[in-house]
Design a protein around this nucleic acid. Structure first.
Lengths: 274, 274
DNA sequence: GTTCCGCATGAATCGATAG
DNA sequence: ACTATCGATTCATGCGGAA
Protein backbone atom coordinates (compact mmCIF):
# COMPACT_ATOMS: atom_id res chain seq x y z
CA UNK A 1 0.00 0.00 0.00
CA UNK A 2 1.19 3.49 -0.85
CA UNK A 3 2.00 5.96 1.86
CA UNK A 4 0.80 9.52 1.40
CA UNK A 5 2.27 12.78 2.66
CA UNK A 6 -0.13 15.68 2.38
CA UNK A 7 0.97 19.29 2.84
CA UNK A 8 -1.48 22.14 3.38
CA UNK A 9 -0.46 25.76 2.89
CA UNK A 10 -2.11 28.16 5.32
CA UNK A 11 -2.90 28.96 8.91
CA UNK A 12 -3.60 25.74 10.77
CA UNK A 13 -6.44 27.43 12.66
CA UNK A 14 -8.26 27.39 9.29
CA UNK A 15 -6.73 24.44 7.50
CA UNK A 16 -7.47 21.97 10.28
CA UNK A 17 -11.17 22.53 9.65
CA UNK A 18 -10.85 20.67 6.35
CA UNK A 19 -9.85 17.47 8.17
CA UNK A 20 -12.36 14.81 9.25
CA UNK A 21 -13.35 14.10 12.83
CA UNK A 22 -11.48 11.24 14.50
CA UNK A 23 -9.07 10.72 11.63
CA UNK A 24 -5.59 11.19 13.10
CA UNK A 25 -3.60 8.71 15.19
CA UNK A 26 -0.77 10.95 16.33
CA UNK A 27 -0.28 14.70 16.42
CA UNK A 28 3.34 15.67 16.93
CA UNK A 29 4.18 19.33 16.74
CA UNK A 30 6.31 22.14 17.96
CA UNK A 31 4.41 25.40 17.63
CA UNK A 32 6.32 28.66 17.34
CA UNK A 33 7.40 29.65 20.81
CA UNK A 34 6.15 32.93 22.16
CA UNK A 35 7.97 35.91 20.63
CA UNK A 36 10.77 33.64 19.41
CA UNK A 37 11.41 33.21 15.68
CA UNK A 38 9.82 36.54 14.90
CA UNK A 39 11.44 36.69 11.53
CA UNK A 40 10.07 33.40 10.29
CA UNK A 41 6.72 33.32 12.03
CA UNK A 42 4.37 35.97 13.23
CA UNK A 43 5.64 35.90 16.77
CA UNK A 44 2.91 35.50 19.34
CA UNK A 45 3.19 37.58 22.49
CA UNK A 46 3.71 35.53 25.63
CA UNK A 47 0.69 37.09 27.33
CA UNK A 48 -1.54 36.19 24.37
CA UNK A 49 -0.16 32.72 23.82
CA UNK A 50 -2.87 30.65 25.50
CA UNK A 51 -5.63 32.65 23.84
CA UNK A 52 -3.95 32.09 20.48
CA UNK A 53 -3.42 28.36 20.92
CA UNK A 54 -6.74 27.23 22.39
CA UNK A 55 -8.79 27.41 19.16
CA UNK A 56 -6.12 25.28 17.50
CA UNK A 57 -6.04 22.67 20.25
CA UNK A 58 -9.84 22.58 20.04
CA UNK A 59 -9.62 21.55 16.37
CA UNK A 60 -6.89 19.05 17.17
CA UNK A 61 -9.18 17.48 19.75
CA UNK A 62 -11.79 17.07 17.04
CA UNK A 63 -9.58 15.48 14.39
CA UNK A 64 -7.73 13.11 16.69
CA UNK A 65 -8.98 9.57 17.16
CA UNK A 66 -9.98 8.54 20.68
CA UNK A 67 -7.13 6.03 20.66
CA UNK A 68 -4.71 8.67 19.44
CA UNK A 69 -2.11 10.85 21.14
CA UNK A 70 -1.07 14.50 20.94
CA UNK A 71 2.56 15.30 21.73
CA UNK A 72 3.31 18.99 22.14
CA UNK A 73 6.93 20.17 22.18
CA UNK A 74 7.11 23.51 23.95
CA UNK A 75 9.17 25.57 26.38
CA UNK A 76 8.35 28.83 28.10
CA UNK A 77 10.63 31.82 27.58
CA UNK A 78 12.12 34.07 30.22
CA UNK A 79 10.37 37.42 30.65
CA UNK A 80 11.60 40.00 33.16
CA UNK A 81 13.93 37.52 34.78
CA UNK A 82 11.17 34.95 35.33
CA UNK A 83 9.91 31.90 33.50
CA UNK A 84 6.61 32.87 31.96
CA UNK A 85 3.61 30.79 33.03
CA UNK A 86 1.81 30.46 29.70
CA UNK A 87 2.70 26.80 29.29
CA UNK A 88 1.30 25.98 32.72
CA UNK A 89 -1.86 27.91 31.94
CA UNK A 90 -2.14 26.18 28.58
CA UNK A 91 -2.11 22.73 30.19
CA UNK A 92 -4.82 23.78 32.62
CA UNK A 93 -6.97 25.29 29.87
CA UNK A 94 -6.53 22.33 27.51
CA UNK A 95 -7.80 20.02 30.24
CA UNK A 96 -10.93 22.17 30.38
CA UNK A 97 -11.34 21.54 26.66
CA UNK A 98 -11.42 17.83 27.36
CA UNK A 99 -7.80 16.82 26.85
CA UNK A 100 -6.24 14.47 29.38
CA UNK A 101 -2.71 15.47 30.41
CA UNK A 102 -1.28 11.97 30.50
CA UNK A 103 2.43 12.63 30.83
CA UNK A 104 5.25 15.11 30.53
CA UNK A 105 8.41 13.84 28.86
CA UNK A 106 11.65 15.79 29.13
CA UNK A 107 13.76 16.35 26.04
CA UNK A 108 17.29 16.85 27.34
CA UNK A 109 19.29 18.75 24.70
CA UNK A 110 22.92 18.02 25.28
CA UNK A 111 24.14 20.71 22.91
CA UNK A 112 22.03 23.53 24.14
CA UNK A 113 22.52 27.19 23.39
CA UNK A 114 25.65 28.67 24.96
CA UNK A 115 25.74 31.82 27.00
CA UNK A 116 26.33 33.09 30.50
CA UNK A 117 24.08 35.16 32.70
CA UNK A 118 24.39 36.36 36.25
CA UNK A 119 21.20 34.70 37.43
CA UNK A 120 20.69 31.50 35.43
CA UNK A 121 22.38 28.68 33.61
CA UNK A 122 21.90 27.55 30.05
CA UNK A 123 18.53 26.01 29.28
CA UNK A 124 19.08 22.45 28.15
CA UNK A 125 15.61 20.93 28.25
CA UNK A 126 12.20 21.25 26.69
CA UNK A 127 8.80 19.87 27.53
CA UNK A 128 7.12 17.12 25.51
CA UNK A 129 3.57 17.19 26.78
CA UNK A 130 1.47 14.12 26.09
CA UNK A 131 -2.27 14.65 25.81
CA UNK A 132 -4.96 12.08 25.13
CA UNK A 133 -8.70 12.04 24.60
CA UNK A 134 -9.15 8.82 26.52
CA UNK A 135 -7.46 6.88 29.30
CA UNK A 136 -7.13 4.04 26.82
CA UNK A 137 -4.88 4.83 23.89
CA UNK A 138 -2.53 3.00 21.56
CA UNK A 139 1.03 2.59 22.83
CA UNK A 140 3.66 0.23 21.46
CA UNK A 141 6.34 0.23 24.11
CA UNK A 142 8.44 -2.56 22.61
CA UNK A 143 9.27 -0.45 19.57
CA UNK A 144 11.37 2.04 21.51
CA UNK A 145 13.25 -0.26 23.83
CA UNK A 146 16.88 0.64 24.29
CA UNK A 147 19.94 -1.49 24.86
CA UNK A 148 20.42 -2.08 28.56
CA UNK A 149 23.89 -0.59 28.73
CA UNK A 150 22.75 2.60 27.16
CA UNK A 151 20.81 4.03 30.01
CA UNK A 152 22.81 2.21 32.65
CA UNK A 153 25.98 3.93 31.55
CA UNK A 154 26.89 6.75 33.91
CA UNK A 155 28.02 8.90 31.04
CA UNK A 156 24.98 10.19 29.19
CA UNK A 157 26.69 10.81 25.92
CA UNK A 158 24.62 11.34 22.84
CA UNK A 159 25.16 8.56 20.38
CA UNK A 160 27.00 9.34 17.20
CA UNK A 161 25.36 8.49 13.90
CA UNK A 162 27.08 5.15 13.57
CA UNK A 163 26.34 4.28 17.17
CA UNK A 164 22.72 5.11 16.67
CA UNK A 165 22.45 2.97 13.58
CA UNK A 166 24.05 0.10 15.39
CA UNK A 167 21.60 0.46 18.25
CA UNK A 168 18.62 0.69 15.94
CA UNK A 169 19.58 -2.40 13.99
CA UNK A 170 20.14 -4.20 17.23
CA UNK A 171 16.69 -3.26 18.38
CA UNK A 172 15.06 -4.21 15.12
CA UNK A 173 16.77 -7.53 14.84
CA UNK A 174 15.72 -8.25 18.37
CA UNK A 175 12.09 -8.01 17.56
CA UNK A 176 12.15 -9.15 13.98
CA UNK A 177 13.70 -12.49 14.75
CA UNK A 178 14.02 -14.33 17.98
CA UNK A 179 12.56 -12.45 20.85
CA UNK A 180 13.36 -15.16 23.36
CA UNK A 181 17.07 -14.60 22.85
CA UNK A 182 16.74 -11.12 24.24
CA UNK A 183 14.20 -11.95 26.90
CA UNK A 184 14.32 -8.46 28.33
CA UNK A 185 17.90 -8.82 29.48
CA UNK A 186 19.68 -6.83 26.85
CA UNK A 187 16.85 -4.45 26.20
CA UNK A 188 15.07 -2.20 28.63
CA UNK A 189 12.11 0.12 28.42
CA UNK A 190 13.13 3.75 28.25
CA UNK A 191 12.12 6.39 30.78
CA UNK A 192 10.35 9.70 30.31
CA UNK A 193 13.64 11.55 29.82
CA UNK A 194 14.87 11.60 26.24
CA UNK A 195 18.46 12.53 25.43
CA UNK A 196 18.92 13.99 21.98
CA UNK A 197 21.12 16.66 20.47
CA UNK A 198 19.67 19.34 18.27
CA UNK A 199 20.73 19.34 14.65
CA UNK A 200 22.34 22.68 14.09
CA UNK A 201 24.56 21.96 11.14
CA UNK A 202 22.11 22.21 8.29
CA UNK A 203 22.45 25.50 6.53
CA UNK A 204 19.27 25.86 4.50
CA UNK A 205 16.75 24.16 6.66
CA UNK A 206 17.46 24.18 10.34
CA UNK A 207 14.79 22.26 12.13
CA UNK A 208 13.55 23.03 15.60
CA UNK A 209 14.07 19.39 16.52
CA UNK A 210 16.01 16.44 15.10
CA UNK A 211 14.10 13.89 12.97
CA UNK A 212 14.84 11.25 15.57
CA UNK A 213 12.54 13.02 18.03
CA UNK A 214 9.26 12.61 16.08
CA UNK A 215 10.55 9.20 15.01
CA UNK A 216 10.62 8.04 18.60
CA UNK A 217 7.05 9.11 19.27
CA UNK A 218 5.75 7.83 15.93
CA UNK A 219 7.13 4.38 16.69
CA UNK A 220 5.70 4.53 20.18
CA UNK A 221 2.17 5.70 19.42
CA UNK A 222 1.40 4.48 15.88
CA UNK A 223 1.75 1.48 13.58
CA UNK A 224 2.37 1.40 9.83
CA UNK A 225 -0.28 3.15 7.72
CA UNK A 226 -1.55 5.19 10.66
CA UNK A 227 -2.00 8.94 10.17
CA UNK A 228 0.43 11.46 11.68
CA UNK A 229 -0.36 15.18 11.75
CA UNK A 230 1.90 18.18 12.32
CA UNK A 231 -0.06 21.48 12.29
CA UNK A 232 3.17 23.52 12.46
CA UNK A 233 5.17 21.64 9.87
CA UNK A 234 8.18 23.96 9.58
CA UNK A 235 11.04 22.17 7.92
CA UNK A 236 9.03 18.95 7.92
CA UNK A 237 10.92 16.78 10.37
CA UNK A 238 7.70 15.12 11.51
CA UNK A 239 6.61 14.27 7.96
CA UNK A 240 10.02 12.94 7.06
CA UNK A 241 10.01 10.71 10.10
CA UNK A 242 6.49 9.51 9.27
CA UNK A 243 7.40 8.69 5.69
CA UNK A 244 10.54 6.84 6.74
CA UNK A 245 8.44 4.72 9.09
CA UNK A 246 5.66 4.14 6.50
CA UNK A 247 3.00 6.23 8.21
CA UNK A 248 0.66 8.52 6.31
CA UNK A 249 1.20 12.14 7.20
CA UNK A 250 -0.43 15.56 7.01
CA UNK A 251 1.43 18.80 7.54
CA UNK A 252 0.16 22.36 7.73
CA UNK A 253 2.51 25.27 7.13
CA UNK A 254 1.77 28.97 6.93
CA UNK A 255 5.03 30.04 5.26
CA UNK A 256 5.27 29.55 1.51
CA UNK A 257 9.03 29.13 1.78
CA UNK A 258 8.85 26.15 4.13
CA UNK A 259 5.88 24.67 2.28
CA UNK A 260 7.79 24.71 -1.01
CA UNK A 261 10.89 23.32 0.57
CA UNK A 262 9.17 20.37 2.23
CA UNK A 263 6.97 19.47 -0.74
CA UNK A 264 9.96 19.41 -3.07
CA UNK A 265 11.97 17.32 -0.65
CA UNK A 266 9.19 14.82 -0.06
CA UNK A 267 8.43 14.48 -3.77
CA UNK A 268 11.81 12.87 -4.23
CA UNK A 269 10.70 10.16 -1.87
CA UNK A 270 8.21 7.34 -2.34
CA UNK A 271 5.11 9.14 -1.24
CA UNK A 272 2.34 10.91 -3.07
CA UNK A 273 1.86 14.60 -2.62
CA UNK A 274 -1.56 16.19 -2.80
CA UNK B 1 33.09 30.42 64.17
CA UNK B 2 30.84 27.55 65.17
CA UNK B 3 28.18 26.28 62.80
CA UNK B 4 24.76 25.54 64.26
CA UNK B 5 22.14 23.04 63.22
CA UNK B 6 18.77 23.69 64.76
CA UNK B 7 15.90 21.20 64.64
CA UNK B 8 12.32 22.10 65.44
CA UNK B 9 9.71 19.46 66.20
CA UNK B 10 6.26 20.29 64.95
CA UNK B 11 4.16 21.34 62.00
CA UNK B 12 6.12 23.81 59.91
CA UNK B 13 2.97 25.88 59.36
CA UNK B 14 3.30 26.76 63.06
CA UNK B 15 7.02 26.42 63.71
CA UNK B 16 8.03 28.78 60.92
CA UNK B 17 6.27 31.58 62.79
CA UNK B 18 9.04 31.48 65.40
CA UNK B 19 11.64 32.47 62.82
CA UNK B 20 12.63 36.09 62.14
CA UNK B 21 11.75 38.01 59.01
CA UNK B 22 14.46 38.05 56.32
CA UNK B 23 16.72 35.63 58.12
CA UNK B 24 17.23 32.72 55.72
CA UNK B 25 19.54 32.60 52.70
CA UNK B 26 18.36 29.36 51.14
CA UNK B 27 15.29 27.22 51.57
CA UNK B 28 15.69 23.75 50.12
CA UNK B 29 12.93 21.24 50.65
CA UNK B 30 10.94 18.34 49.34
CA UNK B 31 7.48 18.42 50.85
CA UNK B 32 5.45 15.24 51.34
CA UNK B 33 3.88 14.11 48.12
CA UNK B 34 0.19 14.35 47.59
CA UNK B 35 -1.69 11.17 48.13
CA UNK B 36 -5.01 9.94 46.94
CA UNK B 37 -5.33 7.62 49.88
CA UNK B 38 -6.31 9.20 53.14
CA UNK B 39 -4.44 8.88 56.37
CA UNK B 40 -1.24 7.43 55.09
CA UNK B 41 1.96 9.03 56.32
CA UNK B 42 1.64 12.77 56.07
CA UNK B 43 -0.72 12.29 53.17
CA UNK B 44 -2.22 15.43 51.72
CA UNK B 45 -4.95 14.92 49.16
CA UNK B 46 -3.92 16.02 45.68
CA UNK B 47 -6.97 18.23 45.27
CA UNK B 48 -6.19 20.01 48.56
CA UNK B 49 -2.46 20.31 47.97
CA UNK B 50 -2.28 23.94 46.88
CA UNK B 51 -4.60 25.06 49.64
CA UNK B 52 -2.44 23.20 52.16
CA UNK B 53 0.87 24.54 50.87
CA UNK B 54 0.10 28.23 50.38
CA UNK B 55 0.10 29.25 54.07
CA UNK B 56 3.50 27.60 54.38
CA UNK B 57 4.96 29.30 51.31
CA UNK B 58 3.61 32.57 52.71
CA UNK B 59 5.69 32.08 55.85
CA UNK B 60 8.69 31.06 53.79
CA UNK B 61 8.36 34.29 51.84
CA UNK B 62 8.51 36.18 55.10
CA UNK B 63 11.56 34.45 56.58
CA UNK B 64 13.65 34.43 53.41
CA UNK B 65 16.10 37.25 52.74
CA UNK B 66 15.49 39.31 49.60
CA UNK B 67 18.82 38.04 48.26
CA UNK B 68 17.85 34.46 49.08
CA UNK B 69 16.45 31.58 47.07
CA UNK B 70 13.77 28.96 47.58
CA UNK B 71 14.28 25.62 45.82
CA UNK B 72 11.26 23.34 45.87
CA UNK B 73 11.73 19.70 44.89
CA UNK B 74 8.38 18.35 43.79
CA UNK B 75 6.69 16.10 41.24
CA UNK B 76 3.04 15.67 40.55
CA UNK B 77 1.44 12.30 41.01
CA UNK B 78 -0.56 10.38 38.49
CA UNK B 79 -4.24 10.40 39.35
CA UNK B 80 -6.82 8.60 37.19
CA UNK B 81 -4.28 8.05 34.45
CA UNK B 82 -3.35 11.72 34.27
CA UNK B 83 -0.65 13.90 35.75
CA UNK B 84 -2.36 16.00 38.39
CA UNK B 85 -2.11 19.77 37.91
CA UNK B 86 -1.50 20.84 41.50
CA UNK B 87 2.14 21.70 40.88
CA UNK B 88 1.21 23.96 37.98
CA UNK B 89 -1.48 25.63 40.07
CA UNK B 90 0.94 26.00 42.96
CA UNK B 91 3.43 27.91 40.81
CA UNK B 92 0.71 30.24 39.60
CA UNK B 93 -0.62 30.84 43.12
CA UNK B 94 2.84 31.37 44.63
CA UNK B 95 3.50 34.09 42.08
CA UNK B 96 0.35 35.81 43.33
CA UNK B 97 1.87 35.71 46.82
CA UNK B 98 4.85 37.63 45.52
CA UNK B 99 7.30 34.88 44.65
CA UNK B 100 9.16 35.15 41.37
CA UNK B 101 9.39 31.85 39.46
CA UNK B 102 12.95 32.30 38.28
CA UNK B 103 13.73 28.87 36.86
CA UNK B 104 12.80 25.21 36.71
CA UNK B 105 15.70 22.80 37.04
CA UNK B 106 15.26 19.18 36.12
CA UNK B 107 16.60 16.50 38.41
CA UNK B 108 17.24 13.52 36.20
CA UNK B 109 17.28 10.44 38.39
CA UNK B 110 19.60 8.06 36.66
CA UNK B 111 18.55 4.99 38.58
CA UNK B 112 14.88 5.59 38.87
CA UNK B 113 12.32 3.21 40.22
CA UNK B 114 11.86 0.08 38.14
CA UNK B 115 8.46 -0.93 36.91
CA UNK B 116 6.27 -1.25 33.88
CA UNK B 117 2.85 0.14 33.12
CA UNK B 118 0.71 -0.29 30.02
CA UNK B 119 0.36 3.43 29.34
CA UNK B 120 3.50 5.11 30.63
CA UNK B 121 7.21 4.66 31.13
CA UNK B 122 9.19 4.92 34.32
CA UNK B 123 9.30 8.40 35.78
CA UNK B 124 12.94 9.41 35.96
CA UNK B 125 12.78 13.13 36.65
CA UNK B 126 11.54 15.61 39.20
CA UNK B 127 11.09 19.34 39.22
CA UNK B 128 13.39 21.65 41.17
CA UNK B 129 11.50 24.91 41.14
CA UNK B 130 13.55 28.01 41.89
CA UNK B 131 11.68 30.92 43.46
CA UNK B 132 13.05 34.29 44.50
CA UNK B 133 11.76 37.42 46.19
CA UNK B 134 13.79 39.70 43.98
CA UNK B 135 15.29 39.71 40.50
CA UNK B 136 18.65 40.23 42.19
CA UNK B 137 19.75 37.34 44.36
CA UNK B 138 22.97 35.69 45.42
CA UNK B 139 24.36 33.10 43.01
CA UNK B 140 27.87 31.66 42.99
CA UNK B 141 28.11 29.95 39.65
CA UNK B 142 31.83 29.12 39.84
CA UNK B 143 31.24 26.72 42.73
CA UNK B 144 29.36 24.20 40.62
CA UNK B 145 31.33 24.24 37.37
CA UNK B 146 31.75 20.95 35.55
CA UNK B 147 34.51 19.60 33.32
CA UNK B 148 34.20 20.55 29.68
CA UNK B 149 33.17 17.83 27.27
CA UNK B 150 35.61 15.66 25.39
CA UNK B 151 35.11 17.77 22.31
CA UNK B 152 37.07 20.61 23.87
CA UNK B 153 40.51 19.05 23.75
CA UNK B 154 40.83 18.53 20.00
CA UNK B 155 38.75 21.58 19.28
CA UNK B 156 40.87 24.01 21.21
CA UNK B 157 44.25 22.55 20.38
CA UNK B 158 44.94 24.85 17.46
CA UNK B 159 42.82 27.85 16.80
CA UNK B 160 42.13 29.23 13.34
CA UNK B 161 42.23 32.95 12.68
CA UNK B 162 38.46 33.28 12.90
CA UNK B 163 38.67 31.63 16.27
CA UNK B 164 40.93 34.36 17.56
CA UNK B 165 38.57 37.19 16.84
CA UNK B 166 34.92 37.72 17.33
CA UNK B 167 32.98 35.96 14.59
CA UNK B 168 29.42 37.08 14.05
CA UNK B 169 26.86 34.41 13.41
CA UNK B 170 25.20 34.51 10.02
CA UNK B 171 21.75 33.52 11.16
CA UNK B 172 20.90 36.83 12.77
CA UNK B 173 20.85 35.15 16.08
CA UNK B 174 22.96 37.97 17.42
CA UNK B 175 25.38 35.35 18.55
CA UNK B 176 29.05 35.88 17.85
CA UNK B 177 31.81 33.80 19.21
CA UNK B 178 35.38 34.24 20.26
CA UNK B 179 36.64 30.73 20.61
CA UNK B 180 39.98 31.84 21.95
CA UNK B 181 38.20 32.79 25.15
CA UNK B 182 37.82 29.11 25.86
CA UNK B 183 41.40 27.97 25.49
CA UNK B 184 43.19 27.11 28.67
CA UNK B 185 39.86 26.44 30.28
CA UNK B 186 38.86 22.99 31.41
CA UNK B 187 35.66 23.78 33.25
CA UNK B 188 32.32 24.96 31.91
CA UNK B 189 29.17 26.22 33.53
CA UNK B 190 26.48 23.59 34.02
CA UNK B 191 22.99 23.63 32.57
CA UNK B 192 19.61 23.45 34.25
CA UNK B 193 19.48 19.65 34.00
CA UNK B 194 21.08 17.89 36.96
CA UNK B 195 22.02 14.24 36.70
CA UNK B 196 22.09 12.47 40.01
CA UNK B 197 21.35 8.98 41.14
CA UNK B 198 18.97 8.38 44.00
CA UNK B 199 20.45 6.80 47.09
CA UNK B 200 19.30 3.24 47.52
CA UNK B 201 21.52 2.42 50.50
CA UNK B 202 18.81 3.30 52.98
CA UNK B 203 19.43 1.92 56.41
CA UNK B 204 16.45 2.91 58.49
CA UNK B 205 15.03 5.61 56.36
CA UNK B 206 14.64 6.26 52.69
CA UNK B 207 15.60 9.82 51.90
CA UNK B 208 13.59 11.73 49.34
CA UNK B 209 16.80 12.90 47.70
CA UNK B 210 20.54 12.22 47.90
CA UNK B 211 22.68 14.57 50.02
CA UNK B 212 24.48 15.69 46.87
CA UNK B 213 21.32 17.38 45.64
CA UNK B 214 20.97 19.98 48.43
CA UNK B 215 24.76 20.23 48.39
CA UNK B 216 24.70 21.45 44.81
CA UNK B 217 22.16 24.17 45.55
CA UNK B 218 23.76 25.17 48.86
CA UNK B 219 27.06 25.73 47.08
CA UNK B 220 25.32 27.62 44.32
CA UNK B 221 23.13 29.95 46.37
CA UNK B 222 24.97 30.43 49.69
CA UNK B 223 28.40 31.03 51.19
CA UNK B 224 29.86 29.76 54.46
CA UNK B 225 27.93 30.77 57.58
CA UNK B 226 24.77 31.53 55.62
CA UNK B 227 21.50 30.08 56.89
CA UNK B 228 19.80 27.13 55.17
CA UNK B 229 16.24 26.09 56.01
CA UNK B 230 14.36 22.86 55.33
CA UNK B 231 10.75 23.05 56.56
CA UNK B 232 10.18 19.35 55.74
CA UNK B 233 13.38 17.95 57.17
CA UNK B 234 12.62 14.26 56.91
CA UNK B 235 15.82 12.27 57.20
CA UNK B 236 17.83 15.48 57.28
CA UNK B 237 19.72 15.40 53.98
CA UNK B 238 19.56 19.18 53.67
CA UNK B 239 20.93 19.75 57.17
CA UNK B 240 23.70 17.23 56.66
CA UNK B 241 24.71 18.91 53.44
CA UNK B 242 24.63 22.33 55.12
CA UNK B 243 26.77 21.18 58.00
CA UNK B 244 29.28 19.56 55.68
CA UNK B 245 29.58 22.84 53.79
CA UNK B 246 29.80 24.96 56.97
CA UNK B 247 26.43 26.62 56.62
CA UNK B 248 24.08 27.18 59.55
CA UNK B 249 20.87 25.23 59.20
CA UNK B 250 17.34 24.99 60.51
CA UNK B 251 15.08 21.99 60.02
CA UNK B 252 11.45 21.48 60.89
CA UNK B 253 10.00 18.00 61.24
CA UNK B 254 6.55 16.90 62.33
CA UNK B 255 7.35 13.24 63.04
CA UNK B 256 9.03 12.48 66.37
CA UNK B 257 10.77 9.49 64.82
CA UNK B 258 12.58 11.51 62.18
CA UNK B 259 13.27 14.36 64.58
CA UNK B 260 15.00 12.02 67.04
CA UNK B 261 16.95 10.30 64.32
CA UNK B 262 18.31 13.49 62.79
CA UNK B 263 19.15 15.17 66.09
CA UNK B 264 21.08 12.14 67.28
CA UNK B 265 22.93 11.86 63.98
CA UNK B 266 23.86 15.51 63.89
CA UNK B 267 24.99 15.53 67.53
CA UNK B 268 27.88 13.28 66.55
CA UNK B 269 29.05 16.02 64.25
CA UNK B 270 30.67 19.35 64.99
CA UNK B 271 27.55 21.45 65.27
CA UNK B 272 25.51 22.60 68.21
CA UNK B 273 21.95 21.45 68.59
CA UNK B 274 19.32 23.63 70.18
C1' DG C 1 38.89 3.09 4.62
C1' DT C 2 39.62 5.27 8.91
C1' DT C 3 40.69 8.79 11.97
C1' DC C 4 41.50 13.54 12.76
C1' DC C 5 40.50 18.15 12.73
C1' DG C 6 38.37 22.77 11.30
C1' DC C 7 34.28 25.07 11.57
C1' DA C 8 29.36 27.07 11.30
C1' DT C 9 25.51 26.86 13.81
C1' DG C 10 21.60 26.91 17.26
C1' DA C 11 13.51 28.17 20.29
C1' DA C 12 18.93 32.47 24.68
C1' DT C 13 19.13 36.18 28.01
C1' DC C 14 20.91 40.25 30.40
C1' DG C 15 22.20 45.02 31.04
C1' DA C 16 23.00 49.26 29.00
C1' DT C 17 21.64 52.63 25.96
C1' DA C 18 18.56 54.90 22.95
C1' DG C 19 13.81 56.54 21.46
C1' DA D 1 8.27 55.18 33.27
C1' DC D 2 8.07 52.23 29.46
C1' DT D 3 9.53 49.84 25.22
C1' DA D 4 12.89 48.78 21.47
C1' DT D 5 17.39 47.81 19.97
C1' DC D 6 22.18 46.34 20.55
C1' DG D 7 26.46 44.28 22.33
C1' DA D 8 28.33 40.68 25.24
C1' DT D 9 28.53 36.20 26.83
C1' DT D 10 30.00 30.82 25.56
C1' DC D 11 28.95 24.83 24.49
C1' DA D 12 28.50 20.77 21.92
C1' DT D 13 27.56 18.75 17.56
C1' DG D 14 27.97 16.67 12.97
C1' DC D 15 29.59 17.53 8.54
C1' DG D 16 33.15 17.65 5.25
C1' DG D 17 37.71 17.83 3.94
C1' DA D 18 42.45 16.52 5.17
C1' DA D 19 45.91 13.38 6.85
Amino acid sequence: MQISAKCLLGDCANELKTLDDNSVDLIFTSPPYADQRKKTYGGVHADKYVEWFLPISQELLRVQKTTGTFVLNIKERVANGERHTYVLELIIEMRKQGWLWTEEFIWHKKNCYPGKWPNRFRDSWERLLQFNKNKKFNMHQETVMVPMGDWAKPRLKNLSKTDRERDESKAESGFGKNVSNWSGRDMAYPTNVIHMATECNNKNHSAAFPVSLPEWFIKLFTIEHDVVLDPFMGSGATLKAAQKLKRNSIGVEIEQKYYDMVTSELSHEQGYLF
